[in-house]
């Protein structure tokens, strides 16, 4: 089976077959992923190269961490990838984006209005948690399509706060 993997801004193709994992470079390596029973701890053998990993399933992919770094990983198989390509929505950077609460807390201020154009890095919402105010910013330019929270509201982790439409969409 062929997979399309998105790790942050990087995209990798990988095919799992009888000879192992084949990467975009054409190289094929035997792979094995073992789990410590009842835990999120994994061990990957890539050929004979050992990788300590942890894996937690998320709504839209996985959070993997290894050697001190955490990665949000999205993955789709060839078929899903092809359908999405055909539907005209190229890649995951386009289309509506959602700003979700990274932690439970209190919405202190909403900094934008519906319809407003924002640049990447613009502040959208200020949340308070652990007595610290944290500004949540747009990770891409776009237009605010909907504000889903009010100032003063208590929100759960992962709750959608603001939706953005990508520029030109």
């Amino acid at each position: 089976m062929k997979y399309f993997v998105t790790i942050g801004e990087e995209r990798l193709e990988i095919e799992l077959g009888s000879g192992g994992a084949t990467f975009g470079t054409g190289e094929t390596v035997p792979v094995e992923l073992a789990a410590v029973p009842g835990t999120a701890l994994r061990h990957l053998l890539l050929g004979d190269e050992g990788w300590r990993l942890t894996a937690v399933r998320e709504e839209d992919g996985w959070t993997l961490s290894t050697r001190g770094r955490r990665f949000r990983v999205r993955i789709e198989d060839e078929r899903t990838h092809a359908i999405r390509e055909l539907s005209g929505v190229e890649g995951s950077d386009e289309g509506p984006k959602e700003l979700r609460a990274p932690m439970p807390g209190l919405v202190v201020r909403v900094l934008v209005e519906a319809g407003q154009e924002v640049e990447r890095g613009d502040g959208l919402v200020v949340m308070e948690a652990m007595k610290m105010e944290n500004e949540l910013r747009a990770d891409a330019a776009g237009r605010v399509s909907e504000i889903r929270v009010q100032e003063g509201a208590t929100v759960a982790q992962g709750q959608v706060l603001v939706t953005l439409e990508a520029e030109g969409a």
């Binding site: 997979y3 390596v29 792979v31 890539l46 990993l53 993955i75």
Partner: peptide, 18 residues
């Protein structure tokens, strides 16, 4: 992240999905 790490993470993700 370096290329080796990305490769390992991608392989792990594919195996997890499988």
């Amino acid at each position: 992240p370096n290329a080796d790490t990305l490769r390992a993470v991608a392989a792990a993700a594919a195996l997890l999905e499988e």
